[in-house]
Computed example of a mutant assay.
Amino acid sequence: MQDVLGMRDDAFVPTRRQPPTVRMRRLAAELLRLRRAAGLSQEDVAERTDVNVATLYRIETGKTKPQLRTLNALLDAYGVPRPDRDELTALQKDAGKRGLLNVPDSDLPEQYTIYINFEAEAREILNFETIFIPGLLQTSDYARAVISGVLQTATDDDVQLRVDARMQRQHLLTKEDGPRLWAVIDEAALHRLVGGPSVMQAQLCHLADQARNPRITIQVVPFSAGAHPGMPGSFIILRFDPIDPDIVYIDSMGGDLFLEQEAELIRHSMAFEHLRAVALSPADTAALLRSLCEDHH
């Protein structure tokens, strides 16, 4: 997966729809909780306000930011007191605040834009990869080779845009308040000759260097581990502040998925814990990466 969201050939249509943010998800979850606490159905709310059911659904699922007058109408219907109203109004005001990537939204696929905004607000990124080096740990040459190989009909400009975006995203790991990255990589990804010997050698040496970063933990699942829970495919778990639920992202040929159901979060969290347990320790992984770097020399 290696976070190539929207990298299918049909993803080049630009979009200007505002992507959801963590704050928007938080506001949506709180409005859903308040409606249920008031004992109201969506139809009840539609009868009491000028907010139709379709709009309410989009608000409660974080697909759209409510206008201030809409928010006030909902809070009136739910009988929300002043202190709580002030907090929710402030959340509505900030709901559109975005992540840190300085690439115009219209130039990137919608799913990629959604992901990079979530990623920029995460406090921890848990990434398991089967056949790629994780995107946040790729060199520019490796990233270019991967994107070119996956998107065979992409133009040079399309490829360069995605390479630039990926390199910018890596700045998150240098920020003092940026997320921590825990990457678990199947050993197969270390032996796939992406971009040729020199590109792969530079990539392996880069991984060895990154393994020394205190904000990054890297583990390799060795071939000797046999079958493991990650074999069905790669996935990323984004963890936020305790009040915001986690998100699981899965990229596949069938489409891009953002999973938020509790059962899915538990299943993928358990799989990641198992993968960490069967993988080489961070110290042994670092030694392996140094050895592979030297071997490629």
Rank of each mutant, 00 (worst) to 15 (best):
K63S: 13
Q67V: 14
L68S: 15
R69W: 14
R69C: 14
T70W: 13
L71Y: 04
L74E: 09
L75K: 13
L75H: 15
D76E: 10
D76S: 03
D76L: 01
A77R: 02
A77V: 04
Y78T: 12
Y78K: 06
G79V: 09
G79A: 13
P81K: 08
R82D: 09
R82N: 05
R82M: 10
P83C: 05
P83W: 04
P83S: 05
P83Q: 05
P83K: 02
D86A: 10
E87L: 12
L88K: 03
L88A: 07
A90C: 01
A90K: 00
A90E: 06
Q92W: 05
Q92D: 10
K93D: 06
D94Q: 14
A95E: 11
G99V: 05
L101P: 12
P104Y: 00
S106D: 02
S106Y: 00
D107K: 00
L108S: 01
L108I: 00
E110H: 11
Q111D: 07
T113H: 03
I114Y: 10
I114G: 05
Y115L: 09
I116L: 11
I116F: 11
F118G: 13
F118Q: 12
E119D: 15
E119C: 15
E119Q: 15
E119Y: 11
E121N: 06
A122F: 07
A122N: 01
E124S: 13
L126S: 01
F128W: 10
E129V: 00
T130N: 09
T130I: 05
T130S: 10
I131T: 03
F132P: 01
I133W: 01
P134I: 00
P134L: 03
G135P: 03
G135S: 06
L136Y: 13
L137G: 11
Q138A: 07
Q138I: 02
T139H: 03
S140Y: 03
S140E: 10
S140D: 12
D141Y: 08
D141P: 05
D141H: 09
D141T: 12
Y142V: 06
A143R: 00
R144I: 01
R144L: 06
A145Y: 07
